[in-house]
Design a binder for these strands. Structure first.
Lengths: 213, 213
DNA sequence: TCCCTTCTATTCAACTTTGACTAGGGTACT
DNA sequence: AGTACCCTAGTCAAAGTTGAATAGAAGGGA
């Protein structure tokens, strides 16, 4: 599963109502083009697909206020909200190894209550540990690790970066339990969208050397 | 870019001549189903696509020796060999963050001379360092890191795991410079394919709890 | 003998992703 | 008053990915 649905649902949800270009801009504001496959085509596709599946409701809008083709505005439905939270929870717990999914989920983690966030992250750590145990046991050859030759480096890479992911998650749990950030039901939420007309300080003006993700 | 083309080209190349099912088996033997999107559909698609593009030559073969539908055997062409090495070099140097590509490249790294392997990995480290510098400079807000709220955790995740990737690469360089493994032109190469009829010790018999990558 | 499962080998439709393209309107220079 | 360029907003064809389906042969038990 890719991160795009979660990102798009989350973005539309924060706006209440949004068209494709707004979503695209928010994601860029969050730096999502750096760490996910949130390209225009994917965003518009996800919007249409989710509208077809009843997760979003599409409002046809007259030609735009500021040039360009007619827009469609979307709103998250009840079903869409449920799908959003299901996706969010799954993305936090699954030790997918796919960092874009985790990144997106971290971006929306404050939509959950603090206690649940911690609980889900603990499940993530447990999942990683189990995966590690199962994989190292399963792939350890009888004739000693040398028999794998350089292929063993691949295992090494995956296992050690899973370890690193677990460590990072534990640190994050510590920060959250230490009171960092503002979670659901704790007053004024953090606002991660651009207001109408507000300038995006992180826009891709200069294509910013090193952007090839 | 995904890892599939590199994996498939590399697998066919090691066999000299191979049909889809053989490729699929080799990839499973290498554990590629654990860390890449090397599913049957993708493999057959890649074979056909690369045949169409002249990277592989397709031999139509009579119905198989051991049941099942008629097979097609593939052979890497000159153009395919060039593409293979181009892909391999790019996958080793690009700090893609996509671990499946790196994993595949590590699997074939011994097809290069030792000195070139080291040089490419050094380029990788440099690439990561540049990316890190550019990204931290670009995304550091004027009002201090707190102004990003929990969104800052995403940056933290990406930057610190890039650091980890650089560290791992440096370690690998050290091991290679220390004489580990057998590279191109250094005599008997490591054989990573199954002989005809040889049993795959890592076959997906038990679906192996925790396989959800 | 008949049926059930497993292995070999591949195909297919549905879905997702990519990168390039379209098109109207504003802005700034010549 | 032309034209070159950028911004807004979105479409599209081609490519890639997924998961399920297909189909023949072989093995094994009731």
């Amino acid at each position: 599963m890719s991160a795009i649905r979660l990102l798009v649902l989350g973005a539309v949800r924060q706006h209440g109502r949004a068209h494709g270009y707004q979503v695209r801009n928010d994601l860029e504001y969050w730096g999502a083009h750096e760490w996910s496959n949130a390209k225009p085509g994917s965003i518009y596709h996800a919007l249409k697909q989710m509208a077809k599946q009843g997760l979003l409701h599409a409002h046809e809008i007259a030609p735009s206020t500021a040039g360009g083709p007619p827009r469609t505005e979307y709103e998250v439905t009840q079903k869409g909200t449920e799908a959003y939270f299901a996706l969010l929870r799954e993305s936090l717990t699954a030790h997918d190894q796919k960092m874009d999914v985790l990144s997106a989920a971290i971006g929306f983690i404050v939509d959950l209550p603090r206690a649940e966030a911690v609980e889900l992250l603990r499940m993530r750590v447990r999942g990683i540990e189990e995966w590690r145990a199962s994989v190292t046991e399963y792939y350890t050859p009888k004739e000693g690790p040398e028999s794998l030759g350089h292929i063993g480096e691949i295992m090494n890479l995956w296992v050690s970066s899973a370890d690193y992911g677990a460590e990072w998650t534990r640190d994050l749990i510590r920060r959250i339990e230490g009171g960092a950030y503002t979670f659901a039901g704790e007053g004024e939420p953090f606002v991660g969208v651009l207001a109408e007309g507000e300038e995006n300080p992180y826009a891709t003006g200069e294509p910013h050397k090193g952007d090839t993700l």
